[in-house]
Design a protein around this nucleic acid. Sequence first.
DNA 1: AATAATGTCAACCGCTAGTAG
DNA 2: ACTACTAGCGGTTGACATTAT
Length: 258
Amino acid sequence: MGRHSCCYKQKLRKGLWSPEEDEKLFDHITKHGHGCWSSVAELAGLQRCGKSCRLRWINYLRPDLKRGTFSEEEQRLIIDLHAALGNRWSQIASRLPGRTDNEIKNFWNSCIKKKLRLRSEKPPDDELATPSSVINNSNFDSAASESQSSTQNLPLWFEQINNSNGGDTFTPTANLPQDPSFQPFRDLEGGAGTMELQSCAPWPALLPNEGAEIHTGGEPEDLKWSEYLDGTIRCMYGIDKGEEQQQQQQQLNFWHRN
DNA sequence: AATAATGTCAACCGCTAGTAG
DNA sequence: ACTACTAGCGGTTGACATTAT
């Protein structure tokens, strides 16, 4: 299977949509529906490929879209859903009416990524840093079950960063590493593409699976943020590949019942 | 005020899955 | 079974806006 055929077509417009193009597309779809996307552009009198029209409709023109920043409730939901589903943005978006997968993905990659980065880069306050021995599974069990079963509470690490305004007033409260050169992942000897989540990782307040292996499929320096976060969250919540589908199904069943 | 650095977000790219012929 | 095509997805890019120096 090759590329989408429209990619080969010449003289099609790319880049930002003009108000006139938006109007043409909106008018056409509200009157006739989109039908086959590849024919929408032509029928609407647009020099665009069908793929571009579809994206513009889904991400911007759809009348049921919600605008503006994410509410706290939505943020909670995104974090919970990402913990359960990983980078399945479309599935996450399907649980947030009026929000698009693109929007959620952008939110995650800018806002939450930044918060995590801040968290991992801030040197710990000596009096607040807690040795890894404080971490224990009983702490995690209650927090993890709370996080997974409820959308009422943000994970502690997120609350801490969120409340810090991302500025100089940041005051970590739990489990930060003493060593500023601390790296959350370390190589396992002889295991290419395999890393271990260090104890006392800088972002979560509680770690369930200290020492759990994370298979990244690449060298540490090649680790992408999505993999980094996904691996982190899997480790935090004790989600292994085998159980993941089952958990996802249970979660979906729960949602469908409610 | 000018420039650089950083953040945000719309849009594109490349891929897979599904489907019709 | 195979091919051609579309829909949809997640990753990435790049233009523009904002903030820092």
